[in-house]
């Protein structure tokens, strides 16, 4: 970890409660520096997705403070168009469910959506769209409606639609969920490529198989919505007691069941 690199995110005792009082995050103190690649690990419902939404300024912390490059991420800050556009140009969020992210009538419209909203000229929009579609190998899908795409194609288009922002920070929510092995392998390659370019990456996942391939650092959530551990992928994967406690690893009960029932 390069401690001299610029701080991208600073979280100080951050907590988040959903309307109605359900607690999603408690006492999160954590920081992300430029060029790091973090894996946020945790069982379903532990708060990983909520944390990413806080980092993308889609939700605002109920408690504590959250800063991006020194600026507080608050509702007041996003009320300013200048701040909103400057932030959105730097941070790209790939949602877990591509159906949520692909809301336009065609793939081309989808990929063009972000640069259009950010006020780029038509020529620059088309240039970014063509580059992103080539990089993600989805050019031939340009005129297809998103509901006619396969799962792997939807994921590629989702990423292309974020790549047109040319973000310096990537937030990926369960990126390998529902992908076949070839698409998973391609995605791991894509994340490594972005990281090699010096971009900052935060991945929420409970897929331990990709951890060592993509992440430089890990943050583990406990089921109490608090940070259970922070460390390198090797250290975290070696700590089986931690992984069991956080519901990220579990012993198959088959043998025990057979023994109990005399099988």
């Amino acid at each position: 970890m390069d401690d001299s690199a610029e701080l991208v995110y600073e979280l100080e005792s951050v907590g988040f409660d959903y309307p109605g009082g359900t607690t999603a995050l408690q006492e999160i103190t954590w920081s992300v520096r430029r060029g790091e690649c973090w894996a946020v690990l945790g069982a379903n419902g532990s708060g990983k997705s909520t944390l990413l939404k806080l980092l993308d300024g889609l939700y605002y912390a109920t408690f504590g403070s959250l800063r991006f490059c020194g600026d507080a991420l608050s509702e007041k800050a996003f009320a300013s168009d200048d701040f909103n556009y400057a932030f959105r140009r730097q941070v790209g969020f790939v949602f877990q469910d591509p159906n949520v992210q692909l809301f336009s009538a065609s793939v081309l419209d989808e990929v063009a959506f972000a640069p259009l909203q950010l006020g780029l000229s038509d020529a620059e929009v088309m240039q970014r769209v063509e580059q992103a579609m080539q990089a993600l190998e989805v050019t031939k899908l340009a005129d297809r409606p998103p509901h006619h795409l396969s799962g792997g194609e939807k994921k590629r288009v989702s990423i292309a639609s974020v790549l047109t922002l040319e973000p310096q920070v990537w937030l990926l929510d369960e990126p390998t969920a529902g992908l076949d092995p070839r698409s998973q392998s391609w995605l791991v390659g894509f994340i490594r490529q972005r990281h090699a370019l010096g971009e900052t990456i935060v991945i929420a996942t409970h897929d331990l198989s990709i951890l060592q391939q993509v992440a430089t650092d890990c943050l583990v959530f406990g089921e109490d919505h608090r940070i259970a551990a922070i460390g390198s992928p090797d250290d975290i994967l070696a700590d089986h007691a931690l992984l069991h406690a956080c519901n990220l690893m579990h012993q198959h009960p088959t043998k025990a069941l057979y023994q109990t029932h005399g099988g």
Binding site: R88, G92, F93, V100
Partner: peptide, 10 residues
């Protein structure tokens, strides 16, 4: 979620 995805992209 769709609204959040739209906001996320500007």
């Amino acid at each position: 979620e769709v609204y959040l995805a739209m906001r996320s992209r500007g």
